[in-house]
Design a protein around this nucleic acid. Structure first.
Lengths: 154, 154
DNA sequence: AAGACGGTCATACTTTCGGGTGATTTGTAC
DNA sequence: GTACAAATCACCCGAAAGTATGACCGTCTT
């Protein structure tokens, strides 16, 4: 139950808020029928409400406009990186685990890795902890160091 | 196919729920047309209009979200490590801070660094936190990555 | 002498990590 | 068609990491 809620939280909340809005509309409609001199207030409320809805929709659905800000960065040329697949198979490290390791080495937090791989934070934790077992380390920094030594990452 | 679904689940479901909402609105509109007078149609038009206004407002007034793209400037591959002292002095990184960075890159925890340098855990935290400021990073993994790129550590 | 700087340490607090456990689903190999 | 590995996700809890702030003490400079 809790699982279901966390998984579809956004959708549920969206649904609930829409429903609430409809109820509110209905209520306003009833009030309007009773006090029929309040039409301007009613219209105003509607306008406000749906302006808000529009803003929300736009913010929710727009893709971020990308403004490219160039910044010079020093980078060591590791063009000679050749993944050591032998070690990879020997240690039984899966594709996904390697991806996690790569992102770790770039300095990503677990949450950032989760966002990039389109999986949950818990999944990343599972991957990383399996990875640590296979690399026989306890920390992500050690994993990065060992990964570089074993040529699993550039 | 299934992969596609899982990856874009949120987006798909959002789309579906929006579609459902539109259908609902359409249905309500029809009800109004059939059973009631034109006032509801009017209200509906207002709602639509102001939803549009909201969208327009949001799009017009929202600051563009900036995505910083780093342009890579290649630097000679240093097979044998040669500390980049220029960057070191430019960023104002002290000797002690560099030592902490080196040990971090070896995978040491703060406590281990403290033991190795014969200082307290809190001191290591202070050093690392100053280091992060100077390197403009938030995590030790990012510090390691940037340190390697700037050739502060091998 | 005053100030800047680097190094040291502390307290208090928040966030992130990592370990442990259990579960479902899916694709593949047998 | 079942057995298995890989991938996914959840929950709990304690440890580690990181933030913010303040303080003290040498050394070096002006």
């Amino acid at each position: 139950m809790k699982l279901f809620f966390t998984r579809y939280r956004t959708i549920l909340l969206t649904g609930v808020s829409l429903a609430a809005m409809l109820v509110l509309l209905r209520w306003l409609e009833l009030r309007f029928l009773i006090f029929d001199n309040a039409i301007e207030v009613y219209i105003g409320a509607i306008a406000l409400l749906f302006t808000g809805l529009g803003v929300w929709l736009a913010l929710k659905l727009t893709k971020p406009k990308t403004v490219i800000v160039e910044r010079q960065v020093f980078v060591a040329t590791n063009a000679d990186f050749q993944l050591n697949e032998t070690v990879l198979t020997e240690l039984g490290i899966s594709k996904r685990e390697l991806e996690v390791l790569e992102l770790m080495a770039l300095g990503c937090s677990n949450q950032e890795i989760a966002n990039r791989l389109f999986v949950s934070l818990n999944t990343v934790k599972t991957h990383s902890s399996r990875l640590f077992e296979k690399l026989e380390v306890n920390r992500r920094t050690q994993a990065i160091e060992k990964g570089k030594r074993l040529i699993l990452i550039p």
